[in-house]
Design a binder for these strands. Structure first.
Lengths: 212, 212
DNA sequence: GCGTAACCCTACGCACGAGTAGGTATGCTC
DNA sequence: GAGCATACCTACTCGTGCGTAGGGTTACGC
């Protein structure tokens, strides 16, 4: 008397995605340590041993989340990249893609940005992703500078890029906390902060500390 | 035969500070959940029950750390504030004080910025401190704008301020990870990013998204 | 229709770490 | 120098949550 099973069996690939969805959700709300494998399993509509069977230990699961969300984000940005465009337009497209991603994946962003930062074992993972972003931005600035026949020390350039990335992340965080906010508009605001300052730098205008 | 005790008894106020020092150190390295009260006690050169007797539960201890480091930081910034100065000079002094603090209290900064962010119960504590900073920056911008006879929607102003604060925090983070970096120089770099852009905004220059 | 592999479960072992019970020693006051 | 408060300890209890042992059921190939 095989009654219809209450919940159907699903292929591994599907279940894995469901688990990752649940994990991202729980990790983003509770943080790595406070999140429990039981809650993740329950949220995924599955039992705990399945999670271990498919995704491994808690750390491995978190890394898997990081990877999925990270590559999604990078792809969203890369997909918007168009070479041979003026620097400001490239920056604009990158920002738009980025804020679009954050707006659509607020949980994923929270895991990436808020959680992975503090936890020792994963900070490196995150830092390398961020480093790639910084590199891209610094590259853009450098490219634009050379086009103007100017040059700035590599370290300074990196630090400026770092600040711009930080400002962007900060606004993304603001966006994640304001569900009714518009990603597009946020990107515009970021452009106003970033580009106006960067454009000045590109034209050789710099600020110097006052004497004394 | 009362030999000299290996470790002497100390008044409560002193021990509390030692405990807070140890707690800040351990929390900054491990994060709230991964940090253990045993390790904190050991690092403070004291036994665990003393920590409970003086500073209370783990959560209360963390909040105490947050408070001490937070007020230290706010005081460092407030101490550098001089009203009746042009906006750029005020910003410069604030930034210098801020980066000076971070350079001198890297552990404290790590607790504030990297740890308190993710953990649910404390995010609010941190957010309110940050909100005060954003308010100060937004106030400065608003003040400078009015002096120019201009005005910007309050929301836009807040978001710009938010981005600037984010960029600053990001550079602080960079500073915390580069022990040999110079806080003063970092502050100058931040000024270059922040002020050049802000000055443009103040003069009514804005960036608009391209058609299409 | 039968083996086998993939999917899925309930129910545990076990370590780690928060918080406490109950007691000892030291210095300070009068 | 008796009394008392304060500083300090060792040695526990007990909950929570990671990870697993051991087994059941459905689909699918042949």
């Amino acid at each position: 008397m095989s009654s219809v099973p209450a919940f159907k069996r699903l292929p591994r690939a599907v279940r894995e995605q469901q688990m990752l969805d649940a994990a991202v959700k729980v990790f983003s709300r509770r943080g790595f340590h406070a999140a429990s494998m039981d809650e993740i399993a329950e949220d995924a509509g599955i039992s705990k041993p399945m999670v271990y069977a498919y995704l491994g230990t808690k750390e491995e699961l978190f890394v898997a989340c990081l990877h999925r969300e990270g590559t999604r984000m990078m792809q969203a940005i890369a997909g918007a990249a168009v070479p041979d465009l003026p620097a400001d337009e490239r920056l604009w497209r990158g920002l738009r893609a980025f804020f679009g991603f954050v707006g659509a994946h607020r949980d994923g962003w929270a895991v990436l940005y808020r959680q992975a930062r503090g936890e020792q074992p994963f900070a490196g993972e995150l830092a390398s992703m961020r480093a790639r972003l910084v590199e891209v931005v610094a590259g853009m600035l450098d490219h634009a500078l050379r086009a103007e026949g100017r040059e700035i020390a590599a370290l300074d350039l990196e630090v400026v890029a770092y600040a711009l990335v930080g400002a962007t992340e900060s606004l993304a965080d603001w966006l994640a906390d304001h569900p009714d906010a518009d990603p597009e508009k946020t990107a515009t605001r970021m452009m106003n902060v970033a580009w106006l300052g960067a454009a000045q730098l590109l034209h050789g205008v710099t600020w110097r500390p006052p004497a004394d």
